[in-house]
Structure formats: structure tokens, C-alpha cells
């Protein structure tokens, strides 16, 4: 994950009172526009790449080119200005744009490597490819769900990375390490006991509780900040946040 694109990381967050990368993508200020696209690319390139690989059955190399080409075209043509939040979620809109783009490229038969002048940081496609091989591939009917799930995975991974950077900067790495041990445990059903963590870190059990609460609190804040960056307004942000957080009891 540390080799992934660094664009849109914790340092690149925007003031709380603004702002949506989708809105800023149409700004007349080229710096702001570039920053906005970086945030959007950081959030979406992985789900886009995986979607191209699975839904369109493209090879690794073709999917890399199409991903780069798609985002370059999006920047050149201001695709996102056509987004209407009343009609669809942004991620649904983006996926529709992507399908249309690939379809047109295939019809024209002129797929080219793009990205010449556009600023896209190098994307860690090997990492994405590895993630793809680690999961069960979906059937054709559930591609929408697949894209949404990969978007969610990408968003959460970015938030974890940003949390790590935040903890490093604030001298709270022990808090992050406890969070990593307890909440990023691949066997999340059986995390280590608080007493075990306390003894490993040589701190009281109450401190484990406090450290974990701190890390979780910051994780939630960062996650919601990232979501706010990639939603167009408060209503879309709230709808998306309610969808991605937790699960309603049955």
C-alpha cells in the first residue's frame, strides 16, 4: 500500500468549510483543478482498473492503458461537469462514463496509450492486480456491486493510510499499531485480547482502550473527510456515509 499513488493523501486534505473535488474539478484555477483530479484519481483508479479487468475482460496491460487513458480523457474533456447528483451517485456516473469510454474506444479501434501531458502519478497496478487475484471473481450480473465494493475497499484503504500518516506526524504510532493489531487483523472475529496487547506494549489495559478509541475516532474522521472530498454536496455526502458505515440490524 505504501507504494501506491500518494496523491490525495492526508497532507492534501482541504479545509473543512469548502469543497468537493467534483466541484473543484471544474475550477478555473488550474492548480485547484489538478489537485481535485488527483483526489478523484486516488479514490477511483483501483476500482476502475479492476472493473476493466473483470467486466471488460481486458488483459493486465490493456487495463493499465485504459485506466490511464480514461482519467486523462476525463481531465481533458471535463467529464465530471456533466454530473447531476439528482440523477445518480457520483460513482454510478463515473462507471457509466467509463463504460461509454471503453465502448467508444473499442468501436473506434484506436486505443492509444494516453497520458502524455496529463499529471497522473504512477499507479501501483501490480498491487491492484495482487488484490484482484486474492478475491473471488464476481459473475457478470453483479458487476455494479463489484465496482461499489472495490470503491469502498479503496476508500477505506486510503483512510487507513492517511490515519497512519496522521499518527506518525502526531507521535501516536502506538495508537496506530494497536488499531492495526485489533481492527486490521485478518481474523477480525478473533482479535487479540486487550490484556495481551497491554502486555506486549507494556501499558495498562485501560490505556489500550483509550488508544484504540483514539485511533478509531480519528479513523472515522479521516474516512468521512475523504468521502466529503469525493461527494458533490452535503446531501450526497450524508447518503453515501449512511450507506458505507455500519450495517442495519436484521
Amino acid at each position: 500500500m505504501s507504494d501506491d499513488t500518494r496523491i490525495g493523501g492526508a497532507e492534501e486534505r482541504f479545509p473543512q468549510t469548502r469543497w468537493s473535488a467534483i466541484v473543484a474539478a471544474g475550477s478555473s484555477d488550474s492548480n485547484e483543478r489538478t489537485r481535485a483530479y488527483e483526489v478523484l484519481v486516488a479514490s477511483y483508479w483501483k476500482p476502475v482498473y479492476k472493473y476493466i479487468r473483470i467486466k471488460w475482460g481486458k488483459s493486465n496491460e490493456d487495463a493499465k492503458d485504459i485506466t490511464q487513458g480514461f482519467f486523462t480523457r476525463v481531465m481533458e474533456k471535463d467529464f465530471f461537469q456533466g454530473f447531476d447528483p439528482a440523477r445518480a451517485r457520483f460513482r454510478t456516473f463515473l462507471r457509466t462514463c467509463l463504460d461509454r469510454y471503453i465502448s467508444n474506444e473499442m468501436k473506434a479501434g484506436n486505443r492509444q496509450k494516453r497520458g502524455g501531458n496529463a499529471h497522473i502519478a504512477s499507479l501501483d497496478f501490480e498491487n491492484a492486480e495482487g488484490e484482484l487475484s486474492a478475491r473471488q471473481l464476481p459473475d457478470a450480473q453483479s458487476m455494479d456491486e463489484f465496482f461499489d465494493q472495490e470503491w469502498l475497499r479503496s476508500l477505506f484503504a486510503l483512510a487507513i493510510e492517511a490515519l497512519k500518516e496522521f499518527c506518525e506526524k502526531k507521535g501516536k504510532m502506538q495508537q496506530f499499531q494497536i488499531f492495526e493489531l485489533y481492527d486490521l487483523n485478518p481474523d477480525s472475529a478473533n482479535p487479540p485480547a486487550y490484556s495481551e496487547i497491554a502486555s506486549n506494549f507494556e501499558i495498562p489495559v485501560t490505556q489500550v482502550t483509550n488508544y484504540l478509541a483514539f485511533a478509531r475516532r480519528e479513523f472515522r474522521r479521516i474516512l468521512l473527510d475523504k468521502l466529503r472530498d469525493i461527494t458533490i454536496n452535503d446531501a450526497e455526502f450524508r447518503n453515501e456515509a449512511r450507506l458505507i458505515l455500519g450495517k442495519d440490524p436484521e
Binding site: 478475491r135 465494493q149 475497499r153 477505506f156 486490521l184 477480525s188 472475529a189 478509541a213 458505515l245 455500519g246
Partner: peptide, 23 residues
């Protein structure tokens, strides 16, 4: 960091949703 499996993702969604009852 390990790849976020569906199970971990599910757990993190609950973690981020749960109220912070510390203090």
C-alpha cells in the same frame, strides 16, 4: 498493511459506525 478482505472491510465499517463511548 494487509489487503483489506471483505471480512476486514465489514469489520471496519462497523468500527467507523459505532459510537465512541470512551469517557
Amino acid at each position: 498493511m494487509n489487503w483489506l478482505s471483505d471480512k476486514m472491510l465489514h469489520h471496519l465499517r462497523e468500527v467507523a459506525d459505532a459510537p465512541d463511548l470512551s469517557n
